[in-house]
Design a protein around this nucleic acid. Structure first.
Ligand code: FES
Ligand code: FES
Lengths: 146, 146
DNA sequence: TTTCATGTAACTTCAAATATTACGAATTAG
DNA sequence: CTAATTCGTAATATTTGAAGTTACATGAAA
């Protein structure tokens, strides 16, 4: 399958929106992210449903962040996106009859569940504010080099 | 994308082979695993290249385990399969120009790398022998219930 | 009332895993 | 030697789910 890149996408969009301040249209965001406005609306719509951003129609409409950057973690975004499947590796049958397969799946599920828990925990500790600060550091470094 | 279920598959096959003792044909294994003989040959071929199983052609041919079950971990199987992609979630662009995207990707890559390390570490600690023992425990419990 | 922008359904495209078909090569039994 | 068996592998098709597109309705602002 194609990999799900929505988390990376919305983060990119959110940081651009945070830098900006005023609403950005899905067309602008799409151009910025090399994708399609409808994809942006679909994806950002999920964040709106979670109360993280707001959308407005008509002229001077667009998308804007409404949440506190310090209060939103990457885990919150992951949840807002519907908790997408984390692993590209899985069991052939989810509830097999075969005892051999049950033993195999139990062992694998265990390891994968732990790895997923760690991942989500890590995502929960990174806020948008921290990412924004990280960007500004990079930006400053970039300008001082030029 | 479809999820990669080869690790689960080969484990299932290997435990069946361990129970058996004599060679099993790819046709038998395929029937057992609800799949196609060619798929079995392709996948088991990778394990053979890693020295974990042996194949023989002609009548009385088939597949057999040649490694010590105590010496083979699930990590070894993962490696033999070519270290398939672990995550179904990824970055949109791997080496973006945009500094915003770089900051985003750096944070994500970090978290994902840690989760992957934990997963592989866990897989490295589970041997085929242990899985086989686990199966026999389940089997005994199953029989005593009947 | 015109223009801009979102909301959303329906459909197409794309990538990657898995499945299938076909046939060649090696091995064993008789 | 010959026939039957089984792997090895290339070529192709199918399947699945994400991403992209098209089309049009809805609502807001000037
Ligand atoms: S895409 Fe991030 S800078 Fe334009
Ligand atoms: S598939 Fe036949 S028992 Fe595992």
């Amino acid at each position: 399958m194609k990999r799900d890149s929505r988390l990376s996408s919305v983060l990119h969009a959110l940081l651009h929106m945070a830098e900006r301040g005023e609403p950005m249209t899905s067309e602008t965001l799409a151009a910025c992210m090399c994708t399609n406005p409808v994809v942006v609306r679909r994806t950002m719509g999920l964040l709106r449903d979670a109360g993280l951003v707001a959308s407005a129609r008509g002229p001077s409409g667009g998308w804007q962040i409404v949440a506190d950057l310090n209060a939103v973690s990457l885990r919150d975004l992951y949840d807002a996106l519907g908790e997408p499947t984390v692993f590209a590796i899985g069991n052939r049958h989810e509830a097999p009859q075969c005892l051999v397969e049950q033993a195999v799946n139990a062992a694998l599920d265990d390891a994968f569940a732990d790895a997923e828990a760690l991942l989500l925990d890590r995502l929960g500790k990174i806020t948008l504010a921290r990412l924004s600060a990280d960007f500004n550091r990079r930006h400053a470094a970039h300008r001082s080099r030029a």
